[in-house]
Amino acid sequence: MLSTVAQVYPVVWQEDRVLLIDQTRLPNEYIVVEISRYEDMARAIKTMIVRGAPAIGVAAAYGVYLGARAIQTSDRDQFLAQLETVAQELRETRPTAVNLFWAIARMLKTARQTIGPVEYLKETLLQTAKQINADDIQTCQAIGDHGVKALPTSPEKLRILTHCNAGALATAGYGTALGVVRSAWRDGRLERVYADETRPRLQGAKLTAWECVQEGIPVTLISDGMAAHCMKQGLIHAVVVGADRIAANGDAANKIGTYSVAIAAKAHNVPFFVAAPLSTIDFSLSDGSGIPIEERDPVEIYQVGDTRICSPGVEFYNPAFDVTPAELITAIVTEFGAFAPSELKPQLHEKQAV
């Protein structure tokens, strides 16, 4: 049994390296991985040692700095050219999470716009990565507080369903969807969390349930196929999920299975909320059809631990994400407030900046 971890910060800068909670080892082991090279950061993102769109963005920002630190030249143009190579390797790790690309773009913009010797550029990049890290924690706390205000006012204490993990582990701390849960628990508005197990990686079972236990938040784990039944039984008052990329019209990509939950929520008149920072909104995409969907190794489907669960010869399809249409979403909760999907572009486009 793991001892209780008071506060969860999955990405931390310490002295000259990054410390990552190895999320592939939870809930059975709490292991911290030290990252000192950008190649190792790219591997950690790709293998899901660190996961969740905001956390990936923070990790990628530090990855850009680690790559910059290793560049051995005092020539500015050569430095920027080599930094682009570092950035491209990091971009190729996870195609769906737009926060990854946002953070890398911000780091590159910092490098291009900073005047001074290369060593000064490197130091400025580190400070920018630290700022991205700190900003994300504040952003998640704001999302949580806006989310509580958007939740149904009745009953007084709510039972909230969530899918996958959009908690402190998926961000720099506090969480997006679980940030709303945390704020609701703090304010006495939460009775219980229902967590989908989230096949095939089981982030709900392994990560969301673990986070809730750390803070004493009542949590009930259900299989993915039970969500509609729980809604029909009146057990769920609201659904709150995160997102890895949101199109300009409000279509939202999140962990595979989210779309099914949204359909069930619509059928049972349960409000469905997406909680995500402004950096998750990709205004360059008019709708969700343009969101790239990552496909992962089929071993995630046919094997649990060391045990194969189906016959040899079976074919597999393993998309990591699906896209929930805007018409199924009650509101999208950001650090600036909760907005109907149709309000995203007119209300928030001008606020977004790299």
Rank of each mutant, 00 (worst) to 15 (best):
V58W: 01
A60C: 13
A61L: 08
Y62E: 05
V64Y: 07
Y65S: 00
L66M: 05
G67H: 08
G67C: 06
A68H: 04
R69D: 11
R69F: 07
A70G: 11
Q72F: 01
Q72C: 01
Q72L: 10
S74L: 11
S74V: 05
D75A: 04
D75G: 07
R76S: 10
Q78W: 09
F79E: 05
A81H: 14
Q82H: 04
Q82A: 06
E84A: 10
T85W: 03
T85R: 11
A87T: 04
E89R: 09
L90A: 06
R91S: 12
R91D: 02
R91M: 09
E92T: 07
E92V: 00
E92D: 14
E92R: 04
R94Y: 00
R94D: 04
T96K: 12
A97L: 08
N99L: 13
N99P: 08
L100R: 07
F101T: 03
F101E: 01
F101D: 11
W102T: 14
W102S: 15
W102N: 15
W102G: 14
A103F: 03
I104P: 01
I104R: 04
I104T: 00
I104F: 00
A105V: 10
A105G: 12
R106A: 12
R106H: 10
M107S: 08
M107V: 06
L108N: 12
L108A: 13
K109F: 01
K109G: 09
T110M: 10
R112G: 13
R112W: 09
Q113V: 00
T114P: 10
I115P: 03
I115R: 15
G116Y: 08
P117K: 07
P117D: 11
P117N: 11
E119A: 08
Y120S: 14
L121W: 09
L121R: 02
K122S: 02
E123I: 11
E123S: 14
T124E: 14
L125A: 02
Q127Y: 07
Q127R: 06
T128L: 02
T128I: 07
T128K: 06
A129M: 04
A129V: 05
A129N: 03
K130G: 04
Q131A: 15
Q131C: 08
I132F: 02
I132V: 13
N133A: 15
N133G: 11
A134Q: 09
D136F: 07
D136M: 08
D136S: 09
D136E: 15
D136H: 14
I137D: 07
I137T: 11
Q138S: 15
Q138N: 13
T139N: 10
T139P: 02
C140R: 08
C140K: 09
Q141W: 13
A142G: 00
I143E: 11
G144L: 09
D145M: 12
D145Y: 08
H146K: 04
G147K: 10
G147T: 14
K149L: 12
K149N: 12
L151E: 05
